[in-house]
Simulated assay, not measured.
Amino acid sequence: MRFHRLRAAALSPLVALAFAASAGTAVADTEINVGALRLASQAPTFIAFEKGYFKDEGLDVDLKFFEAANALSVAVAGGDVNYGTTSITGSLFNLAERGVVKVIAGSLSEDPKIPGAVILASKKAYDAGLTEPAKIAGHSFGATTAGSSFHYMLAEIAEKDGFPLDGVQLKPLQKIGAIVGAISTGQIDAWVIQPSIANKLLADGGAVKIGDYRDYDPDYQVTAVFTSTQIATDQRDQTEAFLRALSRGVKDYNAAFVDKTMDKPEVDALVDMVHKYVGTDTPVETFAPSLTEDSMRVNDGLALSVTSVAKQLEFLQKNDLVSHDVTVEMLVDPSYVTTR
């Protein structure tokens, strides 16, 4: 399959930030709903909101919160939310087959140089011998739903370590919070999750690290930005403005929490902004390490790995979780950002 790259960088909506003011005028006072999960990985959205980057583009944003990727996907497809950032799932491909959603940009990704998702065993399972990913066979594994990103990551581990996927008991628990509780109490044996959540489980003694997911899938496009097909097709100025603003949030996030090139006072200010939405039940000093020490990279300029998207579709079709008629082109609109 062949995807065309974005038009020349000088005209790119994500790198031509000097044009932000004029673009903002084009969509002045436009009200939009942006869907989000209360996860540290969604910090760029919260930063862009708090620092006024959306307002700079003429966008009046109302944040809508969800507890799982599938619910957010359905909300975007139904028009209740205009844009969202979440994992690529079977639900998203099924909606794409119906022609109602489009992925328009990338977001969180594995980076071989940066600590990424952690493969965990419950303390109970670890003590009973689950000490490495290759031993997950015959155990239970936490997921939100079948066809979720967690299901995909399990499949990659199974393939690389040579055990049958159907030899693992997938436990769909719907919400991330429910999976956290299940692995902490030994109700499930294994899980894979971003370091901002994994490291808290490790510190609390609720789980034991048995591997790094980046060793299995170093180009994994963990999350992506998506919208309805109608908006992607008919509201280009608005969508470009949204992505410009979000890309500024990404730049701040990477500088502060991944590349460590931002001054401490600025970093502290960003932590405070994100803490308004994530980890609100803990003091900010307790929450801060989930950003300052445990952040994964978000793709610069919201670039998208179409190669990873295609690999995820292959998994879903191989396991009959989506129709074999679905194509990557049905899901991805490659005209907004750089793709690879």
Rank of each mutant, 00 (worst) to 15 (best):
L170P: 00
Y53W: 03
A203L: 11
F141W: 12
D212I: 03
L59M: 06
A256E: 02
R2A: 08
P334K: 01
T338P: 14
L316F: 06
A203N: 08
L202T: 11
T338A: 05
S149D: 08
A224L: 11
A48H: 00
D259V: 15
V27L: 04
A155C: 09
L39T: 03
T282M: 09
E132Y: 04
E50Q: 14
I210K: 04
T338R: 15
D237G: 04
V168Q: 04
A224P: 14
L246P: 15
A48F: 00
A146S: 14
R5W: 07
D268N: 15
L130R: 04
L201G: 07
Q169R: 05
F141Y: 15
E240A: 08
L37N: 02
K171L: 12
E110G: 06
V278Q: 03
Q317W: 08
E110T: 05
G99H: 01
A269P: 00
K55V: 01
A134P: 07
P218L: 11
L39Q: 06
D237Y: 06
V337H: 13
D268G: 09
G99S: 13
V118S: 13
V15Y: 13
Y336L: 09
V306H: 06
T86V: 03
V61E: 01
K209Y: 02
A178S: 05
F257C: 10
V271K: 13
S140C: 06
G206H: 09
K160Y: 07
D234K: 07
F54P: 00
K113I: 03
D272M: 05
V27G: 02
V278D: 01
L331V: 05
A269E: 14
I179C: 09
F315Q: 14
D166I: 12
G116P: 15
T89E: 01
G301R: 15
V298I: 07
Q312C: 15
M296N: 08
G186W: 08
V27H: 13
M1D: 14
L173Y: 10
S228N: 11
